[in-house]
Computed example of a mutant assay.
Amino acid sequence: MAAIQTTGLTKRFGDVVAVRDLNLQVNEGEVFGFLGPNGCGKSTTINMLMDYIRPTDGTATVLGYDAQNETQAIHERIGILPDATDLYGRLSGRKHIQFAIDSKGTNEDADDILERVGLSADDASRSAGGYSKGMRQRLVLGMALVGDPDLLILDEPSSGLDPHGVREMRQIIQREADRGT
């Protein structure tokens, strides 16, 4: 089964065509990335898959669910790292993860998730306002991993990271794919 399937997916904003006739299939177990310059429609496509915005034309399915009519079922099975995520600067990394756990009603261990994304116990105890860009990205990825999602959608997961941080993010993503996400 395809994890993501689009047929003729199009989004217009007035006279601007952000996405034109996108036919795409991403298979389960596949690590797939959109590459392209700023403004070419990558985030717009993700926003249509998540039903944050509606397509002008075409269809999309995520994990076999219609992206515009079965949104709740999709959101229950995915984890998302949006392009711009604000953190509560005064809360620790551990409290951010615990908030995500409580919100999703799971019984996961926050420290296990923090370890999966490479944040140490000392880092987890610090307030997120003092985190580097890479640490913030890892924390938000950890929040996306809560609930053991079937699919991760990551918008610009390595944006602003140095080469070492990019390599580490790719390794984390590959490990999650190997786990079945």
Rank of each mutant, 00 (worst) to 15 (best):
Q98I: 10
I97S: 04
D112V: 06
R138A: 05
T106G: 03
K95F: 04
L81P: 06
G89N: 07
Y131R: 13
G129V: 02
D111L: 12
P82G: 06
L87R: 06
S103M: 15
D102H: 08
L119Q: 02
R138E: 00
S103I: 06
L114A: 09
N107P: 03
G118Q: 10
L119Y: 00
G129P: 12
D83Q: 14
D123F: 08
K104W: 08
R126C: 08
G105K: 07
L81K: 13
S125H: 08
T85F: 11
I80D: 05
S103E: 08
Y131I: 07
K95D: 10
G89E: 06
L81F: 11
A124T: 00
A84M: 08
G118C: 09
E115D: 13
V140A: 13
N107G: 12
H96Y: 02
L87W: 04
A84Y: 12
K133C: 10
Q137N: 06
L87I: 08
G79L: 12
Q98K: 13
D83Y: 11
I78K: 08
P82C: 09
E108T: 01
A144V: 00
G134H: 07
A100T: 00
V117L: 00
D123C: 10
S125M: 09
E108C: 02
L91V: 01
D122I: 04
L87T: 07
Y88I: 02
S132Y: 01
R136L: 12
I97K: 11
F99L: 12
L81M: 14
K104R: 14
I113W: 06
A124K: 07
Q98F: 06
I101S: 09
D123W: 13
A144Y: 05
R126I: 04
Y131S: 13
L91F: 11
S127R: 14
A121G: 07
R138I: 01
L114V: 02
G142M: 06
